[in-house]
């Protein structure tokens, strides 16, 4: 509870700065309009104008929240939750690609990690590349994957899922290898004295003790998957998905639309990572680790 007050203070401070910045950044347009109309604005009128423009340079928080509500809850009330103007629709497009890619990427990553831990040659040849790949901006390949797959007729969810998959793949490999290697000599020796086979050691010692590492990398991988799916929506001028909302918003100067898509993405990311943390806490508790 002693964390709540500081966090609230920081959040309120951010809000205050945001509103002040909105006044500063939108002032010019409001003054121009007033001058053209031949009226002079009082300070109060100026401020209220900067917080309620249609295409502000920086929309005020309440405008973003209103737009978010209008395109999610509002659409549900109107009975059209999956119309093309609804962020639920766009969010679902992005979410489905994210989840598909995440599942593919993490399962492949876990499999490779198991291979690396059990095969010396694989460890020595693949592991340095897996580590090096983390310093490389792999996201740059995204447009190419989209266009190349598009040219051989694969469209829609799969190309985005592939990008999400390889973005979540490498963190999971590196984290899982670390986790599967985390049992120390003493524990491995103990299982040897029990005459445990390789698979028994794996299922009863290595896999359980890798769980904390797995969840850490799952959280990183999930965030990376979402970024991958969003970026995957940019290059072909896609018309569906959160990334597409940002792109069309930036083409047409619809700043409120960009901000609401950004917030939708942020909420999605926070929810997904939150779900994983929740599972982590439950699971580690039942395993007696936390």
């Amino acid at each position: 509870m002693n964390k709540l007050l500081p966090i609230l203070t920081v959040v309120v401070a951010i809000m205050v700065v945001w509103y002040a910045a909105a006044v500063g950044m939108n002032k010019k347009w409001a003054l121009d309009q007033a001058e053209r109309a031949g009226i002079s604005l009082s300070t109060g009128a100026l401020i209220s104008d900067t917080w309620s423009q249609d295409r502000p340079r920086l929309p005020a928080p309440h405008q973003v929240v209103a737009e978010l509500w209008k395109s999610t809850g509002g659409m549900v009330i109107k009975g059209k939750p999956f119309s093309k103007r609804s962020l639920i629709f766009h969010g679902w497009i992005t979410l489905s690609a994210t989840l598909a890619g995440f599942v593919i990427g993490t399962s492949a990553g876990i499999l490779l990690a198991v291979g690396i831990v059990h095969n010396k040659a694989m460890d020595m040849s693949v592991m340095p590349w897996a580590i090096a790949s983390q310093t490389i901006p792999i996201l740059a390949i995204a447009p190419m994957i989209i266009v190349v797959l598009n040219s051989i007729g694969v469209q829609g969810l799969i190309p985005k899922a592939i990008i999400s998959a390889y973005l979540s793949f490498f963190p999971v490999v590196v984290g899982m290898v670390k986790g599967l290697r985390s049992p120390d000599h003493m524990q491995l020796d103990l299982l040897r004295t029990y005459n445990a086979s390789g698979s028994e050691t794996f299922w009863k010692l290595r896999l359980p003790s890798s769980m904390p590492y797995l969840f850490t990398s799952l959280k990183i991988g999930m965030a990376a998957s979402l970024v991958g799916a969003i970026v995957g929506e940019l290059p072909t001028g896609a018309i569906r998905g959160l990334g597409a909302r940002m792109l069309t918003g930036s083409y047409y100067g619809q700043t409120i639309q960009i901000w609401s898509a950004l917030f939708a993405a942020a909420i999605l990311a926070a929810t997904l990572v939150g779900i994983i943390s929740l599972i982590e806490r439950r699971m580690l508790k039942r395993m007696g680790a936390a």
């Binding site: 203070t9 920081v10 918003g249």
Partner: peptide, 26 residues
């Protein structure tokens, strides 16, 4: 401030910040 900023910072670090790109380009 630390108790307040650290959770907020951790939260923001997990968000798809790359989405601010269109805004900043504008």
């Amino acid at each position: 401030l630390q108790r307040g900023l650290l959770p907020v910072g951790n939260f923001v670090a997990a968000l798809p910040i790359i989405g601010t790109a269109p805004i900043l380009v504008m």
